[in-house]
Each structure stands twice: as C-alpha cells, then as structure tokens.
Write a protein that binds this DNA or RNA. Structure first.
Ligand SMILES: [Mn+2]
Ligand SMILES: [Mn+2]
Ligand SMILES: [Mn+2]
Ligand SMILES: [Mn+2]
Lengths: 219, 219
DNA sequence: ATTAATTTTTAGTCTAGACTAAAAATTAAT
DNA sequence: ATTAATTTTTAGTCTAGACTAAAAATTAAT
C-alpha cells in the first residue's frame, strides 16, 4: 500500500518512540516530535490503525505492527544511506545533513536505494554512528553506553550520538569529539554531573552532563 | 517565496510549452501534460499569476514571467543533474531515470545541487543530451536538427532526443542509437517518410519518421 | 452576421492533513 | 472515594489541490 509523506513521518517518529520502551506510546509524545497538535495526531493514528500499521486503542496509546515497523525501518534505511552519501560523496559535515535527508528519505523507487547502498560500498553506520537497517529490515543492536554511564579511567571509543541537532553536533566538532575518538573519563563532578575527560592523550576538557548523556561509546 | 510541489510541476510544464513558441499557451495544453482537468489548471493559473510567476489573462492564455522562468529553470537544472548522477554514478540506463528525477528535482536545499554539480564534474548535458541550466539560469541554445530534417548523405552526430519516454529510449538502445553515434541518412522514403540510415560503417537500418523526428543531431 | 462547436472559467464539492474549542476519559491528589 | 488536573478524543473548521457540472467566452462554420 502506498504511503504518504505525512504517514511516513508519523511512522518514523512512532518507531523512535517505541524503540526505547515496551509500553505503548502516548499521543502527546508523538505530537511533540511531529510538531502537531494532539488532536491532529489522534486523527492520523486512527488512519494508521485502519491501514494496519499500528495497533491503537483510544486513550491507551499506540505501537507499530510488524508491517508498520518494516515501513519505518525502510525510511530510516533511506535516511541514513542518504546521509552517508551527503557526507562521503558531497563533502557535507555531519551537522548539515539531517534536514536534507529528511526530504530524500521519501523518494520512492524500488531500485534506487539499493544502487545507492552499493555505490556507497554498503556502509554499516551513518555519519552519526547510527546503524543502517538492511534491505530486509534487520538492524543490529549495537549496545553502546552513554558517556555519562561509563566507569572512571576506562578508555572507550566514541561510536555515535543520541541526538542529531545541528548545534549539538557543532559543539562536539568544536570540542574535537568525533566518531572514533579515544576517550577516558577522569571524573564525574557530583555538583552538576559535569564530566572531565581526556581525548586521546590531550589535556582534559569539561563537558556537561547533557552532552555526556548524548555521546555513545563502546568500552 | 516558497514553492509547493504542485506549483513547481506546473511551472516546469508551462516552461516547456512556452519554449517552442512566442504565443501565450492554453489552459488545455497544460491540462494535458499535467494530467489534470482544465478547471484545475485555471485554478492554479490564478494562484501562479497572484504570486507573480505567470502573466495570465482569462481566456487569453498564459506565459511565464522572468521570475517564473527562473524557478522553472532551477527545477530543470536539478532534474537533469540528478539524471546525470543516476546514470553516471548509480549505473542506471537512460530510459530508467526520468521518474526518479521527477521526484528528486523537488528536494530543496541551498547547497545541495551545487555540491552535486561539482561532484559530477560540472556536466553540460544530461543523459538525453539536454543542456543543464547554469546556477544563474543560463541555458545554451544548442541548435540541433531533427534527424528528419538533415540533408541526404551528410554525416551527422546523434546529440540528443526530443522525447524521454522509456519505450522510445529503449527502442533507440535496441537499434544501437546512442549519444555520439555517427549517422548518415541514405534515403527518405516518400511513401511513409521512413528513413534509411547508416550508423558508423554498419549496414543500413530503417526507422520511422516518428523516430527520426525525435532524434536530435549536429551536422 | 448568426449559429454551432469548442475552450475556458465559475460554482460547488471532496479529501488529506492540519487547526481550535469543547467534551470525555484517565490519572493524580486529597 | 471524590475531586481536580491532565491527557486524549470528538466536533467543527480551514487550506491546497484536485474533481464534475454548468455557465460564459471565444473561435469556427455556415
Ligand atoms: Mn538524520
Ligand atoms: Mn543520522
Ligand atoms: Mn527526464
Ligand atoms: Mn533528461
């Protein structure tokens, strides 16, 4: 069945919200991410349920069905592959690609995305460290930790970010925090939970808890 | 001012219809190419006139304004550059790219298309031999002839096609007629205006007037 | 010059996807 | 257990962009 742009955006956002939790998700949480009013969300949820892409009980929240999830994953696959293209081939920075990929992810073609995948040499992650779902909708669970959760004095590698707003990514760039960086947490400050850390063998820098929480690392 | 997808498609089609002629173009001719009813076209023409992209007098036809033309050209630029990308980088055939480019041409980004242009090494023509407008909206007049109009026994080069339907392009491919081919017309058959021609030094082939008319050549 | 045929516009309608205001249901607080 | 606060849904509205049917204007035919 064909999907409209609006439907695709809803499915993607519902996927993101479902990811973390086993609970059904709320109308308001969707409204917040889509920048729509709750009433509009209710409307769309009824349509999506009608099409069999979500299970929805009024007042009780919503979840993706298997089909809904596979649609969401195909859009995420497209989003991330296009982001790789924009960075690897066109020379964009990682903080500049999200808005463009938001548009490109809706291009509809049976063949396009697989040819793009092949052209890019089958990347496994996007410029933000996020895994790229396979054609079959498989997405590896990478099991990264938030930098705010690692043990002291243990070296870890920056593998991704939990947020892709441009200002956040620009801040990381300015701090010299990029994918692959070797990090060691020296101290968690108990007052404001700010973090003192070393990048490679450089002299220590400070980052806020807010930043540390959105950095994903592998130990 | 922002342009919607529907508006962009109308402007592009109006551009195509204006190209050939000095006359204002008719509501019906637009309706035919957009696959809309005349009433819907009238509606849109009023909106486009309101925005200053066309001059429109009811019952008297329509033309693009300077601004309307520059919007149309920027969409055509995007369409053709994406077609080059699809053929050169992703390995599509020339008969497979039109529909996908119809979608890609609407991606909106200040920087994207120029980065793409650079990545493709500033191509001057698309896979169908059509010229690519510059960033400033300049488009060279190539002055090609239709193969149905050339002189007998004069060698010419296949430079483009006047039609990009997939079946037409597939036929050319099957006949071994591709951009750059060296052609020599041996005879125009007076009965059905079919054309006998040689490709390079191969043995002669026959094509219909309909085909010859849609092949563009340089003498 | 009239009349007929054709083209174009107007008037009214529909759908998707948004909105606001009010009603209903759920959850939190006493 | 009731009441208050919060969340969600319903009802009604709006806009863009399509449609059909009927009216109006233009063009072609006598
Ligand atoms: Mn992104
Ligand atoms: Mn990303
Ligand atoms: Mn094309
Ligand atoms: Mn083309």
């Amino acid at each position: 069945m064909a999907t409209s742009l609006a439907e695709e955006n809803y499915l993607k956002i519902i996927y993101r919200l479902c990811e973390g939790t086993k609970e059904d998700i709320s109308t308001n949480s969707i409204a917040e991410l889509t920048n729509n009013k709750a009433a509009s969300v209710t409307d769309m949820l009824q349509k999506l349920a009608e099409k069999g892409w979500v299970t929805y009980q009024k007042y009780q929240g919503v979840r993706l069905t298997k089909i809904g999830e596979s649609i969401a994953l195909s859009i995420i696959r497209k989003h991330r592959l296009w982001e790789v293209f924009l960075v690897e081939k066109l020379g964009y920075n990682w903080d500049e690609v999200h808005e463009i990929a938001e548009q490109l992810e809706h291009i509809e073609s049976e063949t396009l995305i697989n040819k793009l995948d092949s052209f890019l040499d089958f990347p496994k992650i996007d410029p933000h460290g996020d895994p790229i779902p396979s054609q079959e909708g498989e997405i590896p669970e990478l099991g990264y930790l938030h930098l705010s959760e690692v043990k002291l004095n243990e070296t870890c590698t920056l593998m991704g970010v939990a947020k892709d707003s441009a200002v956040f990514l620009q801040l990381l760039t300015k701090l010299n925090l990029s994918l692959g960086a070797r990090l060691e947490v020296l101290e968690f400050n108990t007052f404001d939970r700010s973090v003192s850390l070393k990048i490679a063998e450089e002299k220590p820098i400070f980052i806020s808890h807010e930043v540390a929480k959105n950095i994903l690392v592998k130990v």
